[in-house]
Write a protein that binds this DNA or RNA. Structure first.
Lengths: 200, 200
DNA sequence: CCTACCGATCGGTAGG
DNA sequence: CCTACCGATCGGTAGG
């Protein structure tokens, strides 16, 4: 339930949070940034926690629009799994100023129980399942060997994406993205190759 | 340099920072926690930034003592690389309350230029090199195939450790540690197996 | 949406 | 190492 002004606030909030952290995002700073009063901004949300939850919701929409939705044009299974990781690496380069919103937020809030952490856990878990699902479909369709452990493969692939974000943000060199891309491709190609040899 | 009181403060600071973040670590909270006055505590450091830097230094000592030093008893090369990752996973389970200090701190400070970030970059980079060095030695000694890309392998292994920390902290299930262990072992065993076949 | 304000806490200082 | 304090900023409220 919205209003254009609220959306405008959230747009800025997501960027700020990705740079300064979700807790470091302050109402005063955000209001000043948007040229409005603290209480004027505050009226759109009931509390700081609500603002944080709304920012998370907006970040999830962006992630959905940049990573998940575009992959729907690729065929379900191996192709879509590839598209998901490619989209994710693109979104890393051209997404938020502060790198992956959810990666930073999850490490920030893992020690702070509450609604904010719960929401981060829920949304992050969902993304994990989306990726894993496509790997399972790839197995069902014979694009990956039938004895592939989809959970382990998703763990590995997610690990490479996380490492790319971490290294790119910390060391500022885009080599990390290239390395992740190379490893993801060789991993899927090797798994696929094994599948094809077996079914031949 | 030092004093027992200062060490005692830092011991607590490192734990608090691993849970609440290095910026969320406040002088007042830390002082209250230790039953002393803010200014009394502050006297041991010139500024909050100095406190943060000192906490990072202490965290590095702990990391050194728990992960790197014990691996020195393993033979240089593949065995020591294995020991390093095993020690790291142990330290994750039984280390700080808040998971890996450096993983959290690096994602917290990647968007905040300054001395604190520089120090995190320097120490994290050093750990990376320690791991990569042992992989290179393993190649030199013929324990890994001569065409192994040590940089890529270190990237992959570090990715798995990071993912284990992330998933364990966020979802609270220790399966993540098991998964990382399984993948690390199979990765090194496969690389080693290829090396042995080739040299046979 | 604003001004004006609340109590609490921040990093930091004066003075002892 | 303490008490006592500084100005700034925090999340949030009153009242319009």
């Amino acid at each position: 339930m919205g209003g254009a002004k609220r959306d405008q606030i959230l747009e800025r909030a997501v960027v700020l949070a990705s740079v300064e952290g979700l807790e470091g995002l302050t109402i005063g700073r955000l209001a000043a940034d948007l040229g409005m009063s603290k209480s004027g901004l505050f009226g759109h949300f009931g509390s700081k926690e609500d603002l944080q939850l709304a920012a998370i919701g907006r970040a999830a929409e962006i992630f959905e629009g940049r990573v998940i939705a575009p992959a729907a044009t690729s065929e379900a299974g191996l192709d879509r799994a590839r598209a998901l990781t490619e989209n994710w690496l693109d979104y890393l380069m051209n997404g938020f100023e502060g790198g992956c919103f959810f990666h930073a937020a999850s490490l920030e809030f893992d020690g702070r129980p509450g609604k904010v952490k719960d929401e981060i856990v829920r949304l992050t878990g969902r993304w994990y399942v989306v990726l894993e699902d496509q790997l399972r479909r790839a197995i069902t369709r014979g694009q990956l060997p039938s004895d592939t452990d989809a959970t382990l493969l998703a763990f590995e692939m997610h690990a490479l994406l996380g490492e790319a974000n971490w290294a790119f943000r910390l060391f500022g060199r885009s080599e990390a993205l290239t390395r992740a891309r190379v490893l993801l491709n060789s991993k899927l190609a090797r798994a696929q190759g094994a599948g094809e040899r077996r079914s031949a």
